[in-house]
Structure formats: structure tokens, C-alpha cells
Nucleic acid binder design. Structure first.
Lengths: 213, 213, 213, 213
DNA sequence: CATGAATGAGTTTTCATTCAT
DNA sequence: CATGAATGAAAACTCATTCAT
């Protein structure tokens, strides 16, 4: 299945040289990371990208559509990175999951702006936008999850595959949000990694044995 | 300790007949639920409430102060409901927690707008506003949590009290968000309750025994 | 001729006990002194005076009319003070003029708020209001000037009575403005007096002998 | 030294065709002349100039900055006109001063709106704005004044150079205000010139010989 | 096709004035 | 007659979007 994060961009944008595309997407990410959606300004994005204000609308049509293009761009990076790592992951389901989390953490840990943009986007406009995004990415995320869980002996687990997937996304979100709430604009990537590790440690223990001795 | 969610409202608002107060608070909740803080419009709120644009500022002074009044109103409802239920709760920590979740669910389950507003508020403006809200409610929430966890034998658990509290808040948020994402404007309260129950069931099992057989 | 600074006030105000009238006028003076006309707030004036916001309009009808009442009040004070001093003034026209200036200076010098209110009022709304005020006070100021100049031997002067009156008002305004521009909110009354004296000294010399040796 | 009254305007304004610039400046002058700064409305100015409300802020950024642009525009006109005339002025200090006044009078006499705007600007906001304007124009006005007074034999005068400068500004203001108070919107330029001449005549005589025969 | 000047609906907030109590 | 809650026009300012060049 081919990912097409361009989907919301107009042909005008598709025809641009990749360098220019990248510069524009970067400007968007920077702005969204710093401002969130509402407060982000198309004028400022145009400035950052070194293009005309009008071009934004030639390329994307709407602020909102531009926004989706960015979300898609980020998710595409995220998903394809996950895909690549899959084969080298451990087999035990919990260990596998921990590895996945660590990888994700690495992906974003190295690029704070991306991480911030993603988080701001997710928290703001939660309802309407999330639904649309979910619908759009469902076909890509689902097989990934499937593959992530494939090869594990679910017979040894007390929960179903679907339940594990659910748990998985909960934990993902919960930790992300918890970390996001703790960090400021100057928090270092390594500190964030440490925060993740700490939280993952707790989750690991609980998933393995429950909370009772 | 007395709760005073009026705290951020001006005397002008305190003097209104309760019906009018309710109508205004309702208008706020509706608007915040649909729009979040940034996008919410004081003009629209005034319209919804059937009052003059200027009155908003006579009552609350600022959009931000009005916002806090609403947050406080919701939290007050939430916390006092939780307090009332506490004595009748089961003793086992997991059972106790499940009971608490069910109660919360009941509270919000009956009032979707309140629920939506609350969620939006919690997720938006992550930094500035949440900090302020947290500071203000810390004195009320902390003893509640303490009491919630009191009486449990943590020696029988493999995790500390603090860790349990953390887990607790993660699960709380995760389930809330998951449910929020699934429901639309027309979802019935009973369906929402069912969604919560289902999710709580899974959590219960995992907390008790871990995910392995 | 009787002065009626009440002219712009409604009967409701005339019927008040003098103490209340004074308190209200004082509140106006304070507010106008601090804010000028545009920025002055009727709400704040009502607060300062300890009366209801609505009463302002019962008493004066309009912010503008209230404003004129205050101007008239100040001018009345000013003119009647001048009148009283007249008989004891020196006979030489320049000396007489200097004495008048000194007296005025004393009048206002002792009450900075009055002075400030007057100045702000005069400088702001210059055109429209000044005309109205001038028309209204012409009948009172003219005879005063006349009397001020009476008894002087204009035959010994190289300018006419009318010309002297003109010069007189010019100097009055010029010095007032010059001083106003120099002083801040904390300037002491004695410093202001000194500034006046200095300026008057220069004027005195020029009027007497011209600028040539 | 180069004057740049554009200084407070944004590039957007600098790029406009001169006709449009002129129309906008005219609208500003009209509004400020009629209303002063506080009461002037950016909406009304946009209407008068036939441009969009938003454009005002594209051109000047702030109401205040727009205001300073206008002040600078007027002062620039004023000062450069004065500069040009300087060389042809008579040498005697009083005659020189009279010539300067007549020139100024000519400058403004032809453009009543400019004159009114200037006066309002000068009298209003005594503190904050005047200080800023003064600071900005000091470097241009001072040498002009210096040159104006240069070549005069102050040894022949009974007052110092500084005192003369002070007197100068007083008279300037006093006459301006006196004339301003007398004229209406329909007063003809020639009548205004006559008023100035009349007043200047009186001043001339007094400065020369004092008021005594 | 790129540009950026122009637009105007929209924002929060203030405040003189009215009028039911 | 006094009160002060309610009003809504108006303020300065922003910004996504359009369109002539």
C-alpha cells in the first residue's frame, strides 16, 4: 500500500522541486510546533518558507488543508520508520512493544520540533481533526499493528490481540501526554528519553505481572 | 475546605438569579465544548446565552477569567461528586479505582457537553492554563486522591503508592480520550457508559494479573 | 452680574445639599485632572463621588454637560478670586498685571488638581469646547479685564487698552502652557511657583523696555 | 542632514503611488485636525481615504505610529520651508523673527487642515507624545533656530539668546492659538493672513520698545 | 505561475447611556 | 428619586483569503 501524504495538497505543490517542498513543510512544522493550529499564521509560514503569501493557497487551498498535509507528512515519516525497524524487533510481545516505543522515542527524540508540532496538533482541535486523521491513516496503521503483533504467541497471553492493540495505543498516548506536560521549550532530547525510559519501566512491570506481588 | 468556583467571577455575576447564571454557564460550556478556548468567541457565547456582549465582561472581566470560572464550575461538580461517593467505595485498591472510574463516568455520562468541554479544556493550552488550574485545584484533588488510596495495603502491591497514582491518571486520560474519539454529537449516554465499562474491564484484568496467563 | 456655573446642570443637581454637590464636583475634577476629557470615565466619577452611575445623568444629562459644569465651576472660582483681589492691586499697568498673574498662580498653585484639570481641559477638545466656553464667560471676563485695566494711564503707554488685553491673554496662555509642559505629576507647588516667577521676570523686563538695550 | 518623515511608516506605505500616499495622509490630517489623537478613529480614516480598515495597519502598524508619520510629514514640510527661506531673511533679530513668522503663516495659511492638525497635535497629549516628537526633531529644529538667531548682535539686546528663543516660542504658540480660536472652518486664507499680520504688528512694537512711550 | 497588496469579517474589550426596580 | 444591571455601538487590531499585476 502506498502512502500519499500529498493527498491534501494541490498539484501545484506536487510539481515543486523536493527541496522547496521540504522548506515549506519545515516552515509549517516550525510554526505549528511553536504556535499550535489556531495561533499559527499563514503569513508567518510563508515568510519562514521564503514564498509568497498567496502561494500557500495555490499549494494547499486552505490553512486547514495545509495543516492536514503536515500531519500526514509527519505520520508518514513515523509509520515508515516503524516499518523499517519491524524485522529486527524482539519476539516477546511486551519486549516487542517496548522496542517499538523506544524506536518511536528515538525518532521524535532526535527532532524536537516534529515532536512538538505533532503533540500540539493532536491536543488542539482534538475532536474534529482527529477523526479525519484517524480515518485517513487507519488503512496504514492497521497492517502495521498487525505485523507488530504478528509472530507473537497470543495463546500465552490472557488478553486478545485486539485488546493488546488497544492497550498499546492507550499507553502510547498516556506517556506522550505525560512527558509533553513535563517538558519545556529548553528540555534536552536526552532528558526526554530518560523520562520515557522511566515511564516505560513502570508499564513493563505492570504488563508483565499486574500490580500485585 | 470550601470550594468556591465563583472565585473568578465578579460580584455582578454572583448576584444574578441562578437560572440566568445557569444559562450563561451552559452557553460557555457549549461554546468551549465545540470550539476549545482559543477559537471560542465571546460574541457567540453572549448570543447563545441571550445576553449583551458587554455583559460577559461585566460578569467575568476577561475571556480568560470566564474560562476559569467554567473550568472551576465543572471541577467543583466533579470533585464534590467524587467526595460524596468515597465512603461507600470498596477497599481493594483496584476495585476501589474501578468504582471511582464508574462514578466519574456516571457523572459525565449524563452530560455530554460537560464532558466534551472538560476534555477540550484539559487537552488544550497544555502549558499555561493547565498549570494555573492545577495549582488552584491541587489542594482539593490531593486529599481526595490520598483518601482514595488510603486504607489499601500497598505492601501487597508490587508498585508504590506514587506509581499507582501515576498509572491511575494515565488510565483516566487514556480511556477518556479513547471514548471521546469514538463518540459523536448524538451518541447516547448509555452507549458511552458501555464503552467505559468495556475499557475498564480490560484494565481491571491487566492490573490484576498482568497480560500473561 | 451673577455667575451661574450651575447653568449646565439639571434641577436634580441644584437640589442636592452643597456637600454632595461639592463631593461630585471634586470627583469630576480629580478624574478630569488625571485623565482628560476623552479618557475620563463617568463610571469612575460616580465611584469616586460615591453615587450611582445613573445619577450622573440625572444630574447633568451628558458627560459633556457635566464637563461644562466643572469648567464653569473652576472658572467661577477663578474669576471671583480675581475679583476679590482687584482693589488691592498696584496701579502701574505692568505691575498690576504681574500682581494678577501672581494671584492666579497662587490660586492654582495651592490646588494642583484644579490646575491640572483646567489645563487638560483647555488643551484637549480645544476647538469646539473652547468656543463654547469663551462665549459663555465673555460677559464675566470682559468687565473683569476692564476693571483690571481701569485706573491705569494708558496715555503713558504705546499700546491701546485692547492691545494690552490681548497681550495679556497671550502671555497668560503661553506661560501656562510652558509650565504645564515642564511639570510632571510629582512636581511640587513651590517649584511651579518658582517657574512662574522666572517666566514672569522675563516678561516684565520685555514689557517695560523692549528687548533692546 | 536628511529628513525622513517616512521613518515611522512601513515599507508597504513607501511603495504606494504618491497619489495614494497623499490621499491617506490627507485623510489622517483631516481626521486629526477635527478630532485630535484620542478621538480620531482609524476606521473613519480608512473610510475617508477610501481604503480598507486593515490597510491602515499594513501601512503604519499602529494608530500611534500613523500619528507620528503625519506629525513628521507636517514638520518636515514646515522645517524644509523654513530652511529655504533662511538665507533671504533680514538681519535684525526682530525683523528676522517677523519674517520667519510671516513665512510660517504663509505655509500654513494656504492649508487650513494642516494648520488645524498641527495645532491639535501640539496641544494634545502634552506629555508623552510631545516629548517623543521633540526628541525626534530636536536635531533638525535646533540648528534651524541657531541659524535663525545667528548673525544678530545679541550684545545690543537686553536679553540673552536663550531668553529670546523662549520668547520666540511663546509668541509663536500664543498667536497660533489666538488665531485658531477665532477662525471657523470657512475662514479664508487671506483673512487668516491678515489676522497674523495684525498680531505680529503688535508684537513687533512691544519687542522693540516695550509698552511704554 | 508567483507575488504581495488589499480586503473585511472577525476578535476582545470599553463605556456612555437607559430604564426597570 | 436613586440605583446599577443591561445594553450595543464603537474602538484598535488580526489574518485567512483573493486577485490584479
Amino acid at each position: 500500500m502506498k502512502l500519499d501524504w500529498f493527498k491534501d495538497a494541490k498539484t501545484a505543490f506536487r510539481k515543486l522541486v523536493p527541496e522547496k517542498q521540504a522548506k515549506i513543510i519545515d516552515a509549517c512544522i516550525d510554526e505549528f510546533a511553536e504556535e499550535g493550529f489556531e495561533t499559527a499564521s499563514t503569513n508567518r509560514i510563508a515568510e519562514r518558507a521564503g514564498i509568497a503569501k498567496g502561494s500557500i493557497f495555490k499549494y494547499f487551498g486552505t490553512k486547514e488543508k495545509m495543516f492536514f498535509s503536515v500531519v500526514n507528512y509527519i505520520l508518514e515519516k513515523y509509520i515508515s520508520a516503524a516499518k523499517e525497524k519491524l524485522p529486527q524487533m524482539p519476539k516477546g510481545v511486551v519486549e516487542r512493544y517496548m522496542a517499538y516505543m523506544t524506536d518511536t522515542m528515538d525518532l521524535f527524540g532526535g527532532d524536537m520540533k516534529l515532536y512538538r508540532a505533532f503533540s500540539r496538533i493532536m491536543s488542539e482541535r482534538g475532536g474534529e481533526m482527529m477523526t479525519k486523521i484517524r480515518e485517513q491513516w487507519q488503512p496504514y496503521v492497521e497492517p502495521l499493528m498487525d505485523e507488530l503483533l504478528t509472530g507473537t504467541d497470543f495463546k500465552s497471553l490472557s488478553i486478545t490481540k485486539a485488546e493488546f492493540a488497544t492497550l498499546f495505543s492507550w499507553i502510547d498516548n498516556a506517556i506522550d501526554q505525560d512527558v509533553m506536560a513535563q517538558i519545556g521549550p529548553k528540555t534536552k532530547a536526552e532528558d526526554i528519553k530518560a523520562m520515557y525510559s522511566e515511564r516505560l519501566g513502570l508499564i513493563y512491570r505492570v504488563l508483565k505481572n499486574g500490580i500485585y506481588k
